[in-house]
Write a protein that binds this DNA or RNA. Sequence first.
RNA 1: UGGCUCGUAGCUCAGUGGUAGAGCACUACCUUGACACGGUAGGGGUCGCUGGUUCGAUACCAGUCGAGCCAACCA
Length: 1011
Amino acid sequence: MTTSAAPPPGTTPSAFAPATTEPELSTQWDAKTVEARWYQRWLDAGIFAPDMVAARAGKKPYVIMMPPPNVTGSLHMGHALFVTLQDLLARKHRMQGDPTLWLPGVDHAGIATQAVVERELMRHEKKTRHDLGRAAFLDKVWAWKEKNGDRIVEQLKAMGASADWSRERFTMDEQCNVAVNEAFVRLWQQGLVYRGERLVHWDPALLTSLSDEEVEHEEKDGELWRFSYLLKDDKGETTDQEIVVATTRPETMLGDVAVAVHPEDERYLSMVGRELVHPFFPRRRVVVIADAYVDRAFGTGAVKITPAHDPNDFEMGQRHSLPLINIFTIDARVNAALFAADAGGGGGEFAGLDRFEARKRVKARLEELGLTRGTQPIKHNVSVSQRSGVVIEPMLSRQFFVKTKGFADEALKITGSHGGVAETRIIPEYWQKTWDHFMNNIRDWNVSRQLWWGHRIPVFYDLSKLDEVIEADANRKGTTTEALKAQTEGLTGKKLLEIALRCVDDELVMTKLALASTENLEAKDPGRYAQEEDVLDTWFSSGLWPFSTLGWPNDTEDLRLFYPGSVLETGSDILFFWVARMVWFGKHLMGKSPFSDVFLHAIVRDAYGRKMSKGEGNALDPLDVINGTTLSDLLQKTKSYPIPEKKIERVLKGLEKEYPEGIPAAGADGLRFTLAALSSQGRDVKLSIPRAAGYRNFLNKIWNATRFALMKGGTGPVKSIDATRSSFQLADRFILSKLQRTIETVSMAIDEYRFDAVANTIYSFFWNDFCDVYIELSKTALEGSDEAARSAARTTLLHVLDSSMRLLHPLCPFLTEELWQQLPGRAERWPGIAFCAVAPWPVVDAGLIDVQAERELALLTEAATLIRNVRQEAGLSPRKPVDVDVVAVDAVVVATLLSVRDVLSRFAVIETLNIVSRAGYTAPKLSGATASGNFEVVVHLEGLIDPAKEKGRMVREIDRALRELQGLQKRFENPDFVAKAPVDVVAEGKANMLALDEKLLRLRAALKRLG
RNA sequence: UGGCUCGUAGCUCAGUGGUAGAGCACUACCUUGACACGGUAGGGGUCGCUGGUUCGAUACCAGUCGAGCCAACCA
């Protein structure tokens, strides 16, 4: 492409110097200006869309579905990590020429979004959603979504995400709605959906049920509190006999209908079957039952049973046909109706009390009645809503469930857990076990949510059948039901439906009253049909993501080309929420698992390994790492987080200590590089800011290395590698060889999801091999008079930079694009290719691998290091040239070093360099010396050093070599070692020993010379 | 209670059946014409502990201690 295009708004023209004129790179890389420059250009060029021509021609596409972030959320470290990794994969494959689709989108996040909007509504208008009504409230949510929905997308773009935004989807857009309805109706027709009255996890703050996965368990200190029930005699009179129960939730005794004991527990055997006196509800029947579930050793061995508010009690209630007494309203207050229905007793005083308040009052009242029997502290798990943080109340309610057994069995097969070839691989592998465990213990999925924001369940109740169903239900039960009563009182339509849905048998409702339909029957015939009020769990629509986004249920080209996908990359924390659902639905509705690989990245934690959480005050905002921030801004921001009072002081102190200088700007590229470097498999990502600063420095190093090439690399046309091959010097051969190894390692590391290896390999190649060694050596050639050597260095510099930029591009797209564009000869080298982002992925040129060059260069750097060592230990200025004798152990080493004599002289700042063989060599009187197995280095130091100091250094070095030698000797003393160890290991040991011998010999001689 | 992961340099982490590496931090010297967000050299670890397998274990096995995560019906 030409570089004469006008710079995009917001950038300075000087930053847009055409590559053909004098480069104008500043001495420091500035992420902000570089990163502002490229994204829009990539978008305008349309390079993020898959190559449809290739795809249609049958080239295997590479497809990643982006995990859709919450529409009203903002960028957090988890997003930063997934963008980094997925973008890396997508960009690499795009460069490889695969038709690459990275499909982005956002999720409506039912509960989270509704909760936010409800909170706003309360804060600004002091209204609840019920004050507004469903339609008006939903308008508010949509408005909120429109206002805040783009923020996260903008942030993803700022991170460099090369997703195909032309295919962006929202889980509640029309296409996804169609898919959701279609999927639900199909499941319904296949008998995989049922309606049931179950004990569900109820969130009393958000007023909805939750799935098993949305509940977390926290260990808390509680008390095991005891009280007694008095037994009745056979005439129903109260006796003074009692049975003591232990409970952590005394308030639930308001719903007690039994006390259970173990059937073989002799203490209670005589009491089984007898009735008990409920202190507040004298007319309620409470019996002693025997059930093997009871643990005789725990508590008193007698358990109070509240079937409507405890999952175990519920099951026991089913086994013993106990009644269910719901004692709470939906916001977990004691239901006043309880007392009306069970008239004649006390207890009205509890009506309307919050459950925790009720606990106190129940305890106090039982105390007054003389029924308390002591207490003991206990550690127990409390179920907490992941959404609101409120303690879950197990509540009886009617919900739609999806049968999961069949899905789970398929899911086990797909990952190869039932033997056979896995259709989908889970990486890292150890997650497989967790997957199996989950699938083997799965319970049916509660898909109803008592929310308004979401996909309204496409179930319609036929009002014309209502009367018939209510009567049939009453007949079946042989009693007058609530619904029948309402009916005779003249209630009709939706009002009557509401009551009927509470009491009519689910089976009747499912077969006679309800039907699932993709068509909105209520809209079509509102007189006859009423749609179910509840919405579907968010994960229902997310589960369809891999194909709803491609147009399913329609038979679209996208669907044919891009399903199933290649890899699903996401956080391990949503393996079950999301990945499992997608696998279930993908297999069931599409016949194929939606992806061949599942890569689970670790959770980003703070530098101490704690989960990043705003409530803990340790959540780092990715934008602060990208743009940098001052300490005071950081403190200010943290103060706005919901941190408990007592913690805030400590948290702020910690930040002051941690980031006294604030956070330096690492840029999106810097953050990406850091996250990749830290994300090794099987470990959490502990984000360390000093490390991010270190990688930021690395990117600056790249910037300056390129600057060097542009400034000192010479001018004129750039020759190809092939045209230059014959004039390559040792250094050229060395770096080109190392480059091939780097290309190979990096390519492999990406394919194996070893992102830390990707970053570290490039890092050490570029900094250690290219900058520290090659660039330094190239200076001799570039400044020298040998035209061929100069031209070779130019070719090599630019070739290595060009390859390095392409190699690093998937990880640091902005920086590499910027620099790649500046490289001379780019247009000739890559005709028709406008961006690094679409330049070919580097491939290994085996012809450039040069073991000899690597070995020879190692000799050179070894010599240089030894010389510098002596010089520095002697306290000489690094710039002061010295006279050096290198006494080589054999002729090969002599020849090698002679061939790089000039380079070595410059590298080690040498005035006169003598490279000789040992024969006939006599060392000068006063010299500093050191040695390796290959040569001795003698630095002439007459009048320059303190012999005593030099002697000390030598003694230390001899010591070290001696210790190493002794270790080796010990191994060889063991006859088994020589006999059993592999030959190459033995040979290597022998060679090392010889080298150490040689080294020691030289060092001792040198020491002797010093006197 | 069960399962999983992790204990390696001051910190954050790689690593391999053959006697340990990186980055940051530290010490000394260097404002050298790519880069002080830099250069050169250096110091620093009995690889959590105890056994076992092996010629050889930081690595494999068992146990143990510690940290964390996940899943759980002991009220």
